[in-house]
Every structure is written in structure tokens, then in C-alpha cells.
């Protein structure tokens, strides 16, 4: 970045006095901040201010209207860290991540690999596979709510032809989380698919040609050439999916509200319930900060260990 500077400034120094140089530097800096201002303002209002306020609120008890009632120090944190509810939510979140992230990436990869072929009509399939991206979480949840309906479910109707008894998708604690995971995998499929397909398309053809000449079969080619070369895309999908799994809220709010038996009560939903239904901003904020630390730690770990396996061209 600083490379072209020295020769230029030297030539300037000869022509212009040092003072005006300082002024022009200062102007340039001002200009930079001017360009940064819009995003700084937006970040400040929507991220930094709430973050600061969360830290503040986490040290207080609030009354049922959400007004500060009493300073309690770190009591909120100790209460959260010693409550079963929190660990249940954490465990549900971990299960939810395990159910959605690998399956979501694998499903998208499979579809991307299949539709990467150069065949007639492939564009139609690509269009269909990326379609879930156009569906918002709210709309998707309502569609799946009807599919999962306890008595009118079309999925159960289909199962009845196979002689399988009806499944209580959302009201059976064993099924509720997998049901939401299925819906989420479908919802994220479009985005993951597009990222992975574009990764596949970025692999140069000559590599495939030489593999072919060397007598490599299509499976071997896929695992030895395609997969390593799209590892940056896979890594990206992994990181983004994990973060979005941590933040999943709308489908849970619409489909199960954390129930039955708190079996779908992921951390974010628990925070929402604490803070915005029961107006306990203190413990809600404390949980949010704990979640923040967890996500940060996890992302750092991912970059440290996951990225080593990534091959950048």
C-alpha cells in the first residue's frame, strides 16, 4: 500500500513546502474518515452502542417493564452459568449446529457436483436448486408449519402410503429439533449451493483434462482435484453456516417457540424469551455476552485449525 509513496513525496518535497504537505496528508486522512463515516455511523448505532449497553444491562436487575431496578454486579452471569436452562440451551444449540451445518454443506455439495456437468437443460436444475434462497425465513417457516401440521400434515399423508405411522413433527420432543433442522437445511441450501457451484466452476478445465489423460476416474478426480480446490468455498460455507446456526431464531419462534419441553430452545431463542418476553434484560444481556464470547472463540479456532486445510490457488 505504501509502496508508491516515497518517490512521489520526495519529488513533492522539492516543489512544495513541508507545511502544505502536512496539510494535504491531513486532508487525505479526513477524506478517508469521510468515506468511512457512513459505515462507522451504522456500526456505531447498531453494533457498538448496543454492545456497550448490553455490558451495562448485564450488571443490573430490571423490573417487568425493563427499567433498571437494582445493581447486582456479576450475579446475572453466575445465575446464568449455574442454571440448567442455560446448559440445556447450549446443548440444544450444539445439536442443532451438528444437524444443520455438515448436512447443509454436504447436500449443497452433492447438488453442485451433480449440476456442474455440461448437459442440456442444466440451467433449469441450477435455477431450481438455488430457489430456496428467494424464500424468506418467515415464509419458509409458515410453509413448513403446514407441512408439519399435527393432523393435516402432507408429509404424514405421504408416509401413510409407506405404512409408516404419523410422526408428530413439532410436538414430539424427539422430532422437534430434527424437523427444524430439516427445514433450515432446505432454507440455506440455495445460498450454499450457489457458493459451492461457483467454486466448482472456478476450477480450471486443463486440470480436469490432465487428470483424464492420467486415467483418473470421476470419483477420484472429484476427491483429489475438485474438493481440495473448492476448499476455500467449503470453508466459507462452514464458517457462515455455523454463525447463522447460532443466530437461528425466526423458524424456531414460528414453528415451536422453543418447545416441546425446551427441546428446541436454542441460545438465541432463550435470550429473546428472557429479554423481550419476560423483560429480564439483565440475564438476557449476560447470556448474549456469553454467546458473543463463544462465537468469537469458535471463529478464531476455525480460522486457526480449519484454514490450514484450505488450499488457496
Amino acid at each position: 500500500m505504501t509502496l508508491p509513496n516515497p518517490p512521489r513525496s520526495r519529488s513533492h518535497a522539492g516543489a512544495i513546502p513541508l507545511n502544505s504537505l502536512r496539510v494535504s496528508r491531513w486532508k487525505e486522512r479526513l477524506l478517508a474518515y469521510c468515506f468511512l463515516a457512513p459505515s462507522l455511523i451504522v456500526f456505531g448505532i447498531f453494533l457498538f452502542y448496543p454492545l456497550g449497553k448490553s455490558v451495562y444491562l448485564s450488571l443490573f436487575l430490571t423490573d417487568p417493564q425493563g427499567r433498571i431496578a437494582e445493581f447486582v454486579g456479576v450475579d446475572n452471569f453466575t445465575a446464568v452459568l449455574s442454571s440448567d436452562q442455560f446448559y440445556n440451551s447450549l446443548w440444544v444449540t450444539v445439536k442443532y449446529i451438528l444437524l444443520t451445518v455438515p448436512t447443509g454443506a454436504a447436500a449443497a455439495l452433492l447438488l453442485a457436483a451433480l449440476s456442474h456437468q455440461k448437459l442440456r437443460g442444466m440451467k433449469i436444475f441450477r435455477f431450481i436448486f438455488s430457489l430456496p434462497m428467494a424464500v424468506s425465513v418467515g415464509t419458509g417457516s409458515v410453509i413448513w408449519m403446514i407441512l408439519y401440521h399435527p393432523t393435516l400434515s402432507i408429509l404424514n399423508y405421504g408416509l401413510s402410503f409407506l405404512g409408516i405411522p404419523a410422526i408428530q413433527w413439532l410436538t414430539d420432543p424427539k422430532w422437534a429439533l430434527p424437523s427444524i433442522a430439516i427445514m433450515t437445511v432446505w432454507l440455506n441450501l440455495g445460498f450454499n449451493y450457489i457458493v459451492l457451484l461457483s467454486g466448482l466452476q472456478g476450477v480450471p478445465d486443463d486440470l480436469y483434462e490432465s487428470a483424464k489423460i492420467d486415467g483418473s476416474g470421476s470419483l477420484r478426480t472429484f476427491f483429489r482435484i475438485s474438493l481440495p480446490l473448492i476448499s476455500p468455498s467449503l470453508f466459507f460455507v462452514g464458517v457462515v453456516s455455523i454463525i447463522s446456526a447460532f443466530q437461528s431464531f425466526a423458524q424456531i419462534n414460528i414453528l415451536t417457540k422453543g418447545g416441546p419441553m425446551n427441546s428446541t430452545d436454542v441460545l438465541v431463542y432463550n435470550i429473546y424469551q428472557d429479554a423481550f418476553i419476560n423483560y429480564r434484560f439483565g440475564s438476557g444481556s449476560a447470556q448474549a455476552l456469553i454467546l458473543f464470547v463463544l462465537i468469537t472463540a469458535l471463529t478464531i479456532l476455525q480460522f486457526k485449525f480449519g484454514e490450514k486445510k484450505v488450499h488457496y490457488q
Binding site: H149, P150, T151, L152, Q168, T171, K257, P260
Partner: peptide, 19 residues
């Protein structure tokens, strides 16, 4: 007795459908 979850909306639909 079926367990149809928390919503009375769902039980009343099942009732109307004769289930």
C-alpha cells in the same frame, strides 16, 4: 387422547375434521 401440542387451533381443526 392425542397429544397435538400447545395450540388450541390445532385441536379444534382436528375436532372439526372428525379426527
Amino acid at each position: 387422547l392425542l397429544n397435538l401440542g400447545r395450540k388450541t387451533d390445532d385441536t379444534s381443526k382436528a375436532f372439526a375434521a372428525g379426527q
